[in-house]
Design a binder for these strands. Structure first.
Lengths: 230, 230
DNA sequence: ACCTGAACACCGTTCAAGT
DNA sequence: ACCTGAACACCGTTCAAGT
């Protein structure tokens, strides 16, 4: 009945010495590692805490619940996009920003859907938007039209990346056997145009599709800019 | 210690009479109701089962776990899009399909992200793809180019709808006070082009933005078709 | 063929207690 | 200021037992 002596298995209270202080940044990094290793569905307050050698409840001191944690990961990714220096050629610069965005997404494919999918109200991830706006304004596009075109571009990028990220190996150009499985399934639908295009539908060249979609969006954008500005 | 008599609270074994047989369809419908009422995060095997007056484990007889359940909901939604009859004018027909897709998504905004986000390997939701392909092929576009343009269109539709669905009330045109909150936040970023465009960025006219993005994708599509087919 | 009891190994989160 | 124990109300899923 005396108070507990020194045999307690885990400690309580503040960490004793320099046992690598927990921090928001360390938590985000650990979460990204869990996602990369085991997928986004493996993320829980407990798995992340375990990776840090800490109790799950400790995370609440640095992050606003699980949802806040996932937001923080998305913001971290978005904020770490390396936007290339502007060249002055609008098409080149827009493409460069799109490519930088994609490169970051594909570096963490399992985490990418967080960025593509979450409504980010924070200001952390606004750098790419600023960069796109800068290109459009410098090309002589008025503010309101710039915002509309910005949204067209972003929708094209996100829509395409979302397919690419979700497509998984069964859809990629490398996996020949998954491709033929898919083709067979498409041919069995008996929908005439789908059967006709089954081979093309089963094939997905990620790089080429991204380039095609983004170039299409850029083309329409610059076409409109030319009509308006000068 | 005798075997249990007639006082057991819930029954075991097959349902006794005509107690509305459980079915895959009933399960999907109940899930959609849960989603509409309380959001997608409220979906669990237990909540859906409760809505049906049944034990959660019973669902496993009709549906492949929670993931299979959500796939089934997405397929149901995708399969119930009312595709308008073709008029023969390609732009009109493409717009009609896009609008039909959007109408279905907005009818169940909380469930929409399932359709936009899940990789659907099933053939259930292929009708819209068949319809889009039909329009492109009838316009004289070759098969391979049709598939590429189809993907551009779908990416534009999904990218735009995803923003619209996630935007929530804080982003809409109706909510004037959320809009001004957002504008203030944007002005505080001190990123020059974002500050300049803060008013436009804080404003989002859902109908107009969808129309603009889809028309842009259609324009580029038909432009390419004209160059190729004639 | 279809349902459930018992059971398992998990979840997110609060709040008071510790240092 | 930051951590954890105890606790709560949940999860998805299996498998054998029932009818």
């Amino acid at each position: 009945m005396t108070s507990a002596s020194a045999a307690g298995p885990t400690r309580r209270g503040r960490p004793p010495k320099g046992s690598t202080q927990l921090s928001r940044d360390a938590i985000v990094t650990a979460t990204l590692q869990v996602i990369d290793a085991d997928g986004i569905s493996a993320v829980s307050m407990r798995t992340v805490a375990r990776a840090l050698g800490v109790d799950a409840k400790s995370l609440y001191n640095h992050v606003d619940g699980k949802d806040g944690l996932l937001d923080a990961v998305a913001e971290n990714l978005l904020g770490s996009i390396a936007i290339p220096r502007a060249t002055g050629d609008a098409a080149t610069d827009l493409r460069g920003i799109a490519d930088a965005f994609r490169a970051r997404a594909l570096a963490h494919p399992e985490a990418a859907s967080l960025v593509l999918t979450r409504q980010l109200t924070s200001i952390a991830g606004l750098a790419p938007v600023e960069a796109l706006l800068a290109v459009l304004r410098d090309a002589g596009c008025p503010v309101d039209e710039s915002v509309r075109l910005l949204r067209v571009l972003v929708a094209a990028i996100i829509g395409t990346l979302l397919r690419e990220v979700h497509a998984g190996p069964t859809f990629g150009a490398t996996d020949a056997e998954g491709r033929s499985t898919r083709r067979d399934a498409l041919e069995r639908t008996e929908l005439p145009h789908i059967v006709e295009a089954a081979a093309e539908l089963a094939h997905y060249d990620r790089d080429a599709e991204f380039r095609f979609a983004v170039d299409a969006a850029i083309e329409i954008t610059l076409h409109r800019v030319a009509h308006l500005g000068g």
